[in-house]
Nucleic acid binder design. Structure first.
Length: 447
DNA sequence: TCTGGGGTCCTAGGACCC
DNA sequence: TCTGGGGTCCTAGGACCC
């Protein structure tokens, strides 16, 4: 039994984001792998990887898998030899499980820091507002967060603490890079600490510097984070995409420009896109897929109590030419704007399926399709259209019923016929672990 | 043979208006 | 015959993130 230190001193009511105070980023270590291990303790010290949808790529690796030489985001089939050689445990992704554990981690952080001081940044990361403190106090607090989260949820995290989000991410990067030394926690509170840290960090590891900017910077002779920090704002504005670049440089200097976000749960765009399990060339399958994705997107839409005015669909042809870069093949898309915004599934399926006719080409094979909803409006204030009778949300009642049944069954028990019943095109997911925490029949058993 | 999915923000350029 | 300047809105596309 570990004694929990008092939380109160850190539970600050109103930490202003006015450049005062500190920011922590709390990041779960190899999150998906950690989730899988939680229910398979025998894997605790063994290499583990988790695959993306369709069992396509490797998206999470345990430290042991990294050491074995498995690279991030490479196709599964390319890693198969290495996986066999090192006896690596492989899982298909199980988003239901990860979502639930993510929620537990975030709740823990909210309890520690106060709910208004936590910004959930992704499924495995959150920013936390902290008051000003010394280098030493910050480092200690980081260790404290780490200990409590692990104790309460079983998930191990890394923590970076600094005056700005970008510096906090840098601190976190360094914490993860040398776990033995840092115990997964790094604070960069003073300018001196920041100087030492940024000098040791390559420019491509900075948050906000992706492939293309990294190449550009290195070509210009800017290789360390510290060198980038010392460039002028005007220069950054010109070279790194306008205001984004200027902001980046300021953040590296400790001037906070990226504010904490209020919980942004209403999305501006909702997408459902999938690779097919196998290349598909008949229009019927594509229509079924589009109808299915439209239903899923509509469901997400209703969950955030919004309606959509614009619906776009796209299909991606399977490239015959192997020279074409996999990620840069052509995407064929089209869109339509509805007379009024809606969240009723059949009102979205119909136009979506019609759009397929516009872009489908006979005889061609396709590998992926998707539906995107945009022009989202809050259900409370749908903009009317003079020439269309108000739908009075008649469909909405049916939708609520469907959502309720599907939710209580945890799946898509009820669906529209347009989605198809056989679904030959569905993605593969052969190695999924049980949904331990959300399905009674898949619960973890202890004998 | 087999290469994920879902987002955000920003900019440039065109259409249109007065 | 002459053909400005300033603004808004929309869209496409690039860059980034996890």
């Amino acid at each position: 039994m570990v004694f929990l230190p008092a939380i109160a001193p850190y539970c600050v009511e109103n930490v202003t984001a006015m450049g005062t105070g500190l920011k922590a980023i709390v990041d779960c270590n190899s999150f998906y792998c950690s989730c899988e291990r939680l229910f398979k303790p025998e894997l605790k010290t063994k290499p583990v990887v988790v695959l993306s949808n369709n069992d396509g790529c490797i998206v999470s690796r345990s430290d042991e898998a990294k050491q074995a030489g498995v690279e991030m985001a490479i196709p599964y089939f390319q890693a198969k030899d290495l996986i066999a050689k090192h006896d690596i445990a492989v899982f298909s992704s199980n988003y239901t499980l990860y979502g639930d554990l993510s929620w537990r981690v975030m709740e823990t952080l909210r309890m520690l820091a106060g709910k208004d001081n936590v910004e959930v940044y992704s499924v495995d990361e959150a920013f936390v507002n902290l008051p000003d403190m010394t280098q030493e106090a910050a480092a200690n607090y980081g260790l404290y967060i780490r200990e409590i989260v692990e104790q309460w949820t079983g998930i191990s995290v890394s923590v970076g603490i600094a005056p700005t989000k970008t510096l906090a991410k840098a601190a976190n990067y360094l914490a993860k890079k040398n776990k033995q030394l840092t115990r997964c926690v790094t604070a960069m509170v003073t300018p001196e600490e920041q100087r030492i840290a940024l000098r040791s960090m390559r420019v491509n590891n900075i948050w906000g510097v992706g492939r293309s900017y990294a190449d550009k910077l290195i070509n210009m002779g800017i290789t360390s984070a510290w060198e980038l920090r010392n460039m002028s704002e005007q220069w950054a504005n010109k070279q790194l995409g306008g205001v984004v670049g200027a902001r980046l440089v300021k953040e590296l200097r400790g001037e906070s420009c990226i504010d904490m976000q209020e919980q942004l749960d209403t999305k501006k765009m909702i997408a459902t896109t999938r690779m097919f399990g196998f290349p598909v060339n008949d229009i019927l399958s594509i229509k079924e897929a589009i109808a299915t994705y439209a239903s899923l997107a509509a469901q997400k839409l209703r969950r955030q109590r919004c309606s959509a005015r614009t619906i776009s669909i796209f299909i991606v042809p399977k490239e015959e030419d192997r020279a074409v870069d996999f990620h840069h093949g052509p995407i064929i898309s089209t869109r339509t704007t509805l007379p009024t915004a809606t969240s009723v599934t059949n009102e979205l399926i119909k136009p979506a399926v019609q759009l397929v006719e516009k872009i489908y080409e006979e005889g061609r094979f396709y590998k992926k399709a998707g539906v995107m909803l945009s022009g989202l409006e809050d259900d409370k204030c749908i903009q009317g259209n003079l020439f269309v009778p108000e739908s009075k949300n008649k469909g909405r009642f049916l939708m609520d019923m469907m959502d309720n049944i599907n939710f209580s069954m945890r799946g898509d028990i009820l669906k529209f016929a347009a989605s198809g019943t056989k679904r030959d095109w569905k993605m593969r997911q052969e190695l999924r672990s049980p949904r331990f925490t959300t399905r009674w029949e898949e619960m973890f058993e202890v004998r």
